[in-house]
Design a protein around this nucleic acid. Structure first.
Lengths: 245, 245
DNA sequence: CAATTTCAATAACGTATGTTATTCACTCTC
DNA sequence: GAGAGTGAATAACATACGTTATTGAAATTG
């Protein structure tokens, strides 16, 4: 099952027709990118919504003098917002981290699901609201948490989201972010990211080597990061747009 | 003209029927709050979308030990997202800053506009995308900008948004945020906010006294905050969902 | 209109994090 | 399989910002 379907199914019960439709949409019109390249640049006007089918990518913004902030991380199954159908131009860039495969979802795709796949619509609504919640949590993370808490929180979030998409193996997962990436995402310097990771390591909160992250005791890492998963809204909805109450 | 209508009209040409409908929706089911009280609390499940008709409010999140981050500021005409119809519970709180009047928008309101007011739908879409863009910009602000840049940027954003809603008088506007509020919103300490404001004052970038802000030279304040307004997407759309291309 | 509380200003001092630089291990490439 | 480049580790040092505390003015309240 694809990461997208797996993720959405956590919230909305999809029919097999829904699943088949999503799976088809995510396998047509594919584009591949190497690592560390721009997929969309600030100022551009892409025609389609981009769904990350495989690999890691990120949204980032840059100041004129080069300072760079990663504002969100795309894991397989994540898509950029509906931006492209309404706004005139991108206010940020999207760049690949690893090799990435992107599926382009056209306006027609969204018109079709609006007309005939209400559960998919609800699921995508849910996804976009969770995206917004994540962005708020990042604001809290950068504004209030110390370096150690911040890093622990970021790692927790990624671990939870990977698990939701079916991309963890027990306590471990692929982890292609470099320390420079973590610095850009956390607002810390590279050197301090290094220090912070070592602190997490020596507290046995993480094992991070090569491109693999192991979290031996997720509960403890969550405590270290003051991590509360409620903002990920990982419960199947109690009521939905088309539910009768 | 109400701040909401005025704001939305910047992007979507509304018919007089649209305007009348919005104005009516924003004048029924009103609730009033005093300053510094919670309108909705984290964990609750409000039934309606809250539209701020008058006054200033904010979204905030709090850590267990009391550290508090304001993650967004609601000006008149702003509304919280559609959260309430899809997600199980609030992942943040909404609190008043001044006296606030809120209009409750029911699910029926959204069903009606979906059925009969496509331009309002587009306008609200636009609004929610701009909200997301603002949240990303705040992430950049907290992650990369220095205290001075950060404060200048925040003031610029508020000034632009107030102007869009028709709430400025030339170079000045009401400004009810205390230094403690600015601290919570910028991730700085109160003391450092004070220092930073004085720096902005002595550079003649702002006049801030009582509850009034004057920006004598917006261009210079923008430069100081590395402020680029593109993320506010303040241009009337070139194409919309129902446009033919 | 006194009593309280809130907000702003300022000072002295502490520290978490940034900066610059060097070295070492890997990996990729020709 | 030497050379080049990237990512990680470490050190020495610098600083932007936080903390705690005090004071005065202004707003709010009984």
């Amino acid at each position: 099952m694809s990461p997208l379907v797996r993720k959405l199914e956590q919230f909305v019960r999809l029919s097999s027709t829904d699943r088949a439709y999503l799976t088809r949409a995510a396998s047509e019109r594919l584009r591949k990118f190497g690592p560390r390249v721009d997929i969309v640049r600030e100022g551009e006007r892409p025609k389609d919504v981009q769904l990350v089918v495989a690999g890691w990518a990120c949204r980032y913004k840059q100041l004129e003098d080069g300072r760079r902030q990663v504002v969100s991380i795309f894991l397989p199954g994540d898509s950029c917002d509906l931006n492209v159908f309404i706004l005139r131009e991108m206010d940020h860039s999207i760049g690949s981290i690893t090799d990435v495969t992107v599926a382009d979802l056209s306006r027609e795709f969204f018109e079709e699901i609006s007309a005939g796949y209400p559960r998919i619509v609800t699921a995508l609504w849910w996804e976009s609201l969770v995206d917004a919640a994540i962005q708020r949590e990042w604001t809290l993370n950068l504004g209030q948490r110390t370096a150690l808490e911040r890093m622990a929180h970021l790692l927790c979030e990624l671990f939870f989201r990977l698990r939701l998409a079916g991309l963890t193996n027990g306590e471990s997962c692929d982890f292609p972010l470099t320390q420079a990436d973590l610095a850009d995402a956390s607002g810390l310097s590279k050197v301090h990211v290094n220090r912070t990771l070592q602190e997490l390591r020596s507290a046995n909160l993480i094992v991070l080597k090569g491109k693999t992250l192991v979290v031996p005791d997720l509960r403890r890492l969550m405590d270290a990061g003051l991590f509360n998963s409620n903002y990920l809204h990982m419960e199947r909805e109690g009521r939905q747009l088309d539910a009768t109450e």
